[in-house]
């Protein structure tokens, strides 16, 4: 009992801070989302779920923005995870200049979002960007694309930049997961006549479930709340073609002064994150007990 009290004593400051700054403000945001707050410095009236009703029935941006967010998440995760795993396997295979490649793979992770957004913004610029310039240099000017100025390509450009930034992270987690596979098991497989492909396909990759879960949850969290790259590369445009929930929330709250409605977008983001991420944790908890 005394030990439990001691433990509680040491944990109390953290519990209070997290309760106040995380859950307290989530609660405050939820309350704000139930008001019609529009005037700076003057709290709005309680309007119930009117803001949510507006978002799902009358707001012309919300549905396309929600779809953009989910599309970006799907592309981002769908590419980053296999890419990270492939790069980790390459490192594990002991490729030439492994240390150099390890640094190259991990380098994007050390870049700030602002720096990488600026870099990709210039690369994707249709007139002076390095990608189109390179294509023109090779005499393939007809393949030059409008990239970020196109309403159909802008979201893909952001996804590419995002994949580049996070593939190093996925590589890192998978590489440590692969390194954790016992050499005895792998050696037993080799003795049994397993080829290199079979060794990875049947032994190493199936054992990466915990790493996959870690990568998936973290990538999901980042992709659902992506802001910096979108804001700095396209600002959500052209039109609304690359608008995501976080940029819409910012614009609604701070540029349009719909504070209540902005808070409701934030709560929707929170709920979507919970819906997507909670099952993974529940499943993991179950498997831990099993």
């Amino acid at each position: 009992m005394k030990k439990k009290l001691e433990l509680l004593f040491f944990l109390l400051p953290v519990i209070i801070l997290v309760a106040f700054f995380v859950y307290g403000f989530i609660g405050w945001s939820f309350y704000t989302s139930l008001t019609d707050w529009r005037i700076i410095g003057v709290k709005g009236e309680f309007v119930g779920f009117e803001n949510y009703k507006f978002l799902f029935t009358r707001d012309r941006s919300f549905k396309s923005t929600l779809f953009n967010t989910l599309e970006l998440s799907a592309i981002f995760i769908g590419v980053t995870m296999p890419l990270g795993l492939a790069l980790a396997i390459l490192l594990d295979l002991g490729i030439y200049a492994k240390k150099v490649f390890r640094i190259i793979f991990l380098l994007p992770l050390s870049f700030s979002f602002v720096a990488s957004a600026s870099m990709w913004f210039w690369m994707f610029s249709p007139e002076i960007g390095v990608i189109n310039s390179f294509l023109r240099l090779l005499g393939m000017g007809n393949l030059a694309q409008p990239w970020i100025t196109s309403s159909t390509q802008s979201l893909w450009c952001i996804a590419i930049a995002y994949v580049w930034q996070f593939s190093g992270f996925a590589t890192l987690v998978y590489y440590s997961g692969i390194s954790g596979v016992s050499e005895d098991i792998r050696e037993a497989a080799r003795i049994d006549g397993a080829s290199k492909f079979q060794e990875y396909w049947r032994i190493v990759i199936p054992m990466q479930k915990p790493a996959t879960l870690t990568v998936l949850v973290i990538l999901l969290m980042y992709s659902l709340k992506v802001f910096d790259l979108v804001w700095l590369m396209t600002g959500g445009g052209p039109g609304r073609s690359s608008e995501v929930l976080s940029t819409l929330m910012y614009k609604t709250t701070f540029s349009r002064n719909f504070f209540g409605r902005g808070a409701s977008i934030g709560i929707v983001m929170f709920v979507i994150s919970l819906i997507i991420i909670l099952p993974f944790f529940v499943r993991r908890r179950r498997s831990d007990y099993e």
């Binding site: 610029s125 249709p126 990239w147 970020i148 100025t149 445009g237 052209p238």
Partner: peptide, 12 residues
């Protein structure tokens, strides 16, 4: 816009 008087990369 439609007459092509504007730079194509205006949105960048």
């Amino acid at each position: 816009y439609n007459n092509g008087y504007i730079n194509s990369d205006f949105s960048a």
